[in-house]
Computed example of a mutant assay.
Amino acid sequence: MRTLFLSSKILIVAFVLVLSACNSKPKNQEAEQKSAETATEENWIQLFNGEDLNDWQIKFTGHELGDNYNNTFRVEDGLLRVRYDNWDEWNGSFGHIFYKDEFSHYKLRVEYRFVDEQVKNGPGWAYRNNGLMIHGQSAESMELDQQFPTSIEVQLLGGTQGKEGYDPRSTLNLCTPGTNVVMNGELIEQHCTNSKSETCYGDEWVTAEVEVHGGEIIRHFVNGEEVMHYEQPQLDPRDPTYETLLPADGNIMITKGTISLQAESHPTDFRKIELLVLDE
């Protein structure tokens, strides 16, 4: 009788375990679901809708606002593409495509890759080179022949190809057209500062994320890893745009601005451009 009781008890326990296993989800599936739910709750804004450029403004050096010179910026196969197949050669017309709104406190996340060959006679430094221009001036305020918007540039770079393959080259560096920042308590006036990222080789997709807190701290992330941070973005008195962009109260600190992408001579793909507004 005791043997029968124990056998029945074992069967019941086994049944409960099987039922529990059937109703449970693999850990990775639970993590994916939780991540998706979190993303939904956080209300990420899709700046690029994968269909058109209706929410964007285009400005090329030497061209009027709205002139998409040589159809350089385009949407194909759900990607925002920078292409030079309609160019005979590079002629110094740097391009920028601006999102319609300005932002102050936010996270910006972009997935990008470099493809194909640089346009003929493109600058050597612009090989596998693009950028996220944040805290920028408006597209309307740019001069006709102005090359870059006054902004903070989160520089996107791919490894350069040397004799024995690709040479090391960090990405999500900092460049400062018309601006300065403070890093480790020191005012940084040099144009570009390298991050501590690894090199991104070939045509691989890279996830770039920037966390922006108004006129305070800004952080750069490559594939989820922080590679740089700095603070106090500000106008540079040495730049020709300084007097024009300086507000009436004389405050040189930059607390908000436009977001734009570049066209600097190398074909680039963007498959995701999204933004999460943060509390101030």
Rank of each mutant, 00 (worst) to 15 (best):
Q118I: 11
Q57G: 14
D77F: 14
W125Q: 03
E111P: 09
Y166H: 14
G95F: 00
G95V: 00
E153Q: 09
G131P: 00
P123Y: 11
R109C: 11
Y112H: 13
L144A: 02
F103I: 07
Q137E: 04
L144V: 03
F73G: 00
G78E: 06
K163D: 15
Q137M: 05
K100N: 06
Y84S: 13
G136V: 00
S93C: 10
L108Q: 06
Q146N: 07
Y84P: 05
Y84I: 12
K163T: 07
N130T: 13
F103D: 00
Y112W: 15
R128E: 05
T61W: 03
F148T: 11
Q118Y: 13
H63C: 09
N68S: 09
V110W: 06
G78K: 02
Q147C: 02
D101Y: 05
N129D: 15
V110F: 08
K100L: 08
E153F: 02
F98G: 05
K120N: 12
L156E: 08
G95P: 03
E76I: 11
N129L: 07
H63E: 12
L132I: 08
M133F: 13
F114G: 00
G162R: 08
Q118F: 10
E102M: 07
M133G: 09
V75N: 00
I97Y: 02
G62F: 06
H63K: 15
F94Y: 11
G92V: 03
G124M: 14
L65W: 08
Q161Y: 04
D167W: 08
H96C: 04
L108A: 05
M142W: 05
R113Y: 11
P149I: 01
D85R: 00
F73D: 00
K59F: 14
L157G: 03
G165S: 08
H135F: 15
L65R: 05
Q118P: 15
R83F: 12
G162N: 02
E102D: 03
G131C: 01
Q118C: 14
V154T: 04
Q146T: 08
F98E: 04
E140Q: 09
S141C: 11
D101E: 14
V119N: 02
L144G: 07
G124N: 09
E117Q: 04
